[in-house]
């Protein structure tokens, strides 16, 4: 078990290192000169050289990469070209908003997907099932940037129930969270349905029914316990999609998180900030995936007790 834990951690570390390298290389090897793009064509040669020196772009690539690693170890992500502040500071400022949104979106998705999936599975092929699965197909097919404006139109502009955008108070969280959670809810409800359907045919479910347990207990306590494993894995894997979706959702609702920061940084050509944002989101994703993997291992008695 401990050996498994270490090998997972080691491989997660390798992936994070690879992610950092890839982000660095992609940003540095893009055709065209970032300095040129940042300063415009009419810039003076002296200004270009100065900026190139500040960014360390005048040094050879391997040296730059080593410097990048060294700084990463010290949690030094460089300085924002736009606001001239340390990037770690900027990120720390924006992180709570994104964490809040992602958490709310995920909660939303789980609250919606579980009842829907269970309903569809226990009444397979009924109108409920068809309805729930159609809703979920629609949910997957409607992108954030379509859902968001529509929600604003209905709930903020017409009904005047919720604020249009921004981050002020709990009410302003509702629309972005629903928009972000919708696609996840759709995928999740399908998974709950499929994995519950698989489990409900097992012998021990028949036993539970035979000993006269209420259907509710059979489904939620006996069925869901086994059906939960693949669902949890999916939830972990989907967090990355959720975080990436946050980039668009935050833009739609002017939600001041990491996603909006990424877009602002792209618009102001603030490459060090773009690099840091991508790195932060991807690293979070890798860490969560590794944790999910571990939780999965721990939850599944076949893996926990089997093997050695």
């Amino acid at each position: 078990m401990l050996q498994l834990l270490f090998s997972r951690l080691a491989s997660a570390f390798v992936v994070v290192l690879g992610v950092a390298t890839l982000v660095f290389l992609l940003i540095h090897m893009v055709p065209g000169d970032p300095v040129e793009v940042m300063l415009g064509e009419s810039a003076q040669q002296a200004d270009r050289d100065a900026l190139r020196h500040t960014l360390g772009l005048d040094r050879p690539l391997p040296e730059q990469l080593l410097g990048f690693y060294r700084n990463l170890l010290h949690f030094n992500l460089g300085t924002s070209l736009h606001s001239k502040r340390p990037i770690t500071e900027v990120l720390a400022e924006r992180l709570p908003a994104t964490a809040e949104l992602a958490l709310a979106g995920m909660t939303m998705a789980v609250l919606l997907a579980f009842p829907l999936g269970v309903l569809a599975a226990t009444r397979k092929d009924s109108a409920w099932d068809t309805g729930a699965m159609t809703a979920s197909l629609l949910g997957v097919s409607i992108p954030n940037f379509v859902m968001g404006p529509l929600m604003i139109l209905v709930f903020a502009v017409w009904a005047r129930l919720l604020p249009v955008s921004g981050r002020e108070g709990l009410l302003s969280l509702i629309l972005p969270a629903v928009t972000l959670g919708m696609a996840l809810a759709a995928i999740l409800s399908r998974m709950v349905r499929a994995s519950l359907l698989e489990v409900l045919h097992e012998d021990y479910i028949r036993t539970a029914r035979a000993k006269g347990l209420a259907e509710r207990v059979v489904v939620w306590r006996h069925g869901m316990r086994s059906a939960l494993l693949p669902v949890i894995t999916l939830l972990g894997l989907q967090l990355g999609v959720l975080l990436a979706g946050a980039v668009i959702t935050e833009t739609v609702f002017s939600w001041p998180g990491i996603g909006l920061l990424t877009i602002e940084a792209i618009q102001t050509r603030d490459y060090p900030v773009v690099q840091a944002c991508v790195l932060l989101i991807s690293t979070t994703y890798v860490v969560v995936n590794t944790l999910t993997d571990m939780v999965y291992t721990w939850l599944d008695p076949r893996i926990r007790l089997g093997g050695r």
Binding site: G18, A244, V247, C277, V278, I281, Y285
Partner: peptide, 17 residues
């Protein structure tokens, strides 16, 4: 390593750069 990125995020960053 490529799968460690949420796909659309990498695409956004690449398109932006």
């Amino acid at each position: 390593i490529f799968l460690a990125f949420p796909g659309i995020l990498l695409a956004i960053a690449m398109a932006g750069i």
